[in-house]
Design a binder for these strands. Structure first.
Lengths: 344, 344
DNA sequence: CTGAAAGCGCTAACAT
DNA sequence: ATGTTAGCGCTTTCAG
């Protein structure tokens, strides 16, 4: 509680007089002085490593609490040459990729993971056609680590040495950049199998953009299963958005009027599909079953059958890997869990 | 394009030999050396202010491009005592407030605004019952600015002097902290009026948590309009979530079975309400009209009548205020626009 | 076990 | 107009 009073009085122990009002945050020097030790000793105590007598330890600890000392990350970063923020680089065709709620979630999750470490987050779009733009971004000494989103192989190759062990990719990885990924293939397979088991035989899919590796794994799984069952694939290209799903639904039914199930590459896509279908008087799931992917909060509310992934956890895991500079396995795959609800 | 080749060769001009491989990012010293001027001169031309001959300017510029120089924000922050990230402090009853997609969006939007300035973002929850926790957070020299979310008056009072002019509140403001806000009252009034004009007379509302000032403005407007029309208010407390809307819908109809319209405090709430209604065989909007608030992307897809606010722009405006350290008017109110779609 | 001293990269007086 | 000089707050050899 009333720490501030104590601080205001205590922080100027060795000073001639208490200056005006602006109690500026305490520095390590203040702590050292208050503890009656040298700056170096104080630093050692705080670092946890290095030698220090129990007495010194104790006194420094007290001083820190008393003054409410918080290390200045800029100073630390400067001496360590380590940077002060994590960069989230999102590949995409245009800056609009950053408008995706999925990116919002990723940024927020990384920010939450960074905050306790005294680091901030920055986001930037990297043009799909000019991956070398990433180099400019990593040139910045302020960048302490890198999280790649919508990663492409070209991007992976451009991660500089300086960031080795401080970079992670959500999606595909490489020999030098570990990755954290979802088992899209398995998830989609489970969905398609569920549809098949429910008697659906004319199953279409609204896909994601072709350049996205992780989306392609879903599409691949869809094709394989249909192929194995001797069924033809029915694909319409989408872009993860509800708006595109809305349009795509009509295209699917125009091209293949007897379609009895539509697999959405994402929940938003599926929601769009359902919106269009209902608007056209087509019953879901009676006439056409619809499935999503990701299990966003809204999915439960509208009873969407989908595959669930702990996106937040995944991103947090990724952020933690770079924050703690951990030697990581080349790839960590998170499972996908089928969630059967009303829409299929 | 092939800048890297040029850099690798050029950056060690005055050195004895080119060391191994690790081309570390160029420093201002490197630039100065390459340009044949002193560090200060280089610093001046980069700062834009200060004197410098056209020649010097030119040479420094060239050197910067050649070396791909990017200033080290940590060093800058250190000398300016300015901090390296913006803190987004979110008040709420528990850490779960951070799970809200609205917060995700805010964090991401602020991050986007910060990135060009070389700043990162951090997010933290501030317990509603212990606003003084904010003080600990702002004690950190790394904090360059503050964005308050779900602000309460107690919080506003705890913004330290150091952050004067570098803090902004989304929602209510104070004499020392400017605010950026939505005209919730006006927006809600427009919605209720629309419902009334459409002949609805038994209008209920699923509200937000009581402690939230901005939510209360909506509730206030709802009450006022109903009161003026000689109609009774029908309120059920919600929390912005779809899940709560889902539950609240049933409560509304249990307490007032003849309800013919439900005003949701948020789109998510409204979506939940609609889900429950439809599941119970109640037609929307024929039997009960439903409205939301905010116009999230999904609203258009499911034809939700709502009030639209450029949330991203609003947050960006807020972030920009603190980034550019602008003298801001005490309050900037963004308008709310009624969007009539199918649900009401 | 502890203190003195150097220096991370940059800016801002203060001399030229 | 330009260079020289002090630091900003912290970590880290290197001597005691």
């Amino acid at each position: 509680m009333m720490l501030m009073g104590a601080q205001a009085g205590g922080s100027n122990n060795g000073e001639k007089f208490m200056t005006t009002a602006a109690r500026r945050p305490a520095t390590l020097d203040d702590v050292a002085r208050a503890a009656g030790v040298s700056r170096s000793t104080a630093s050692r105590v705080l670092a946890g490593n290095g030698f220090a007598s129990p007495t010194a330890r104790e006194r420094v600890r007290t001083a820190v609490n008393l003054l409410g000392y918080v290390p200045n990350p800029a100073a630390r970063a400067l001496v360590h040459g380590s940077g002060v923020r994590l960069l989230i680089a999102v590949a995409g065709t245009g800056p609009a990729v950053l408008d995706d709620p999925y990116v919002d979630q990723a940024v927020a999750a990384v920010a939450r993971a960074c905050t306790p470490h005294g680091l901030g987050v920055a986001v930037q779009w990297v043009p799909l056609g000019a991956p070398e733009r990433l180099t400019q971004l990593t040139e910045d000494r302020g960048v302490a680590g890198l999280v790649l989103l919508n990663t492409t192989p070209a991007l992976l190759d451009l991660v500089p040495r300086r960031l080795r062990g401080r970079a992670v990719s959500i999606g595909i990885g490489s020999a030098t950049v570990p990755s954290v990924d979802i088992d899209n293939g398995g998830g989609t397979a489970a969905i398609v199998r569920h549809l098949y088991d429910a008697g659906r035989r004319r199953i279409a899919m609204v896909t994601g953009p072709r350049w996205l590796a992780c989306a392609n794994r879903s599409v691949g799984a869809y094709r394989r299963l249909l192929h194995d069952a001797g069924l033809p694939a029915r694909e319409v290209v989408g872009d993860f958005s509800a708006a595109r799903g809305y349009a795509a639904a009509r295209e699917v039914l125009r091209r293949w009027p007897d379609t009895d199930a539509i697999v959405g590459i994402s929940d938003a896509t599926a929601l769009g599909v359902i919106g269009r279908l209902r608007a056209d008087g087509i019953r879901v799931p009676e006439d056409v079953a619809v499935t999503g992917f990701d299990d966003i909060p809204l999915a439960a509310t509208v009873a969407l059958t989908t595959a669930s992934h702990p996106v937040r956890q995944i991103i947090t895991a990724a952020a933690t890997m770079v924050l703690e500079h951990r030697e990581a396995p080349e790839t960590t795959v998170f499972p996908s869990a089928l969630v059967v609800r009303g829409s299929a």
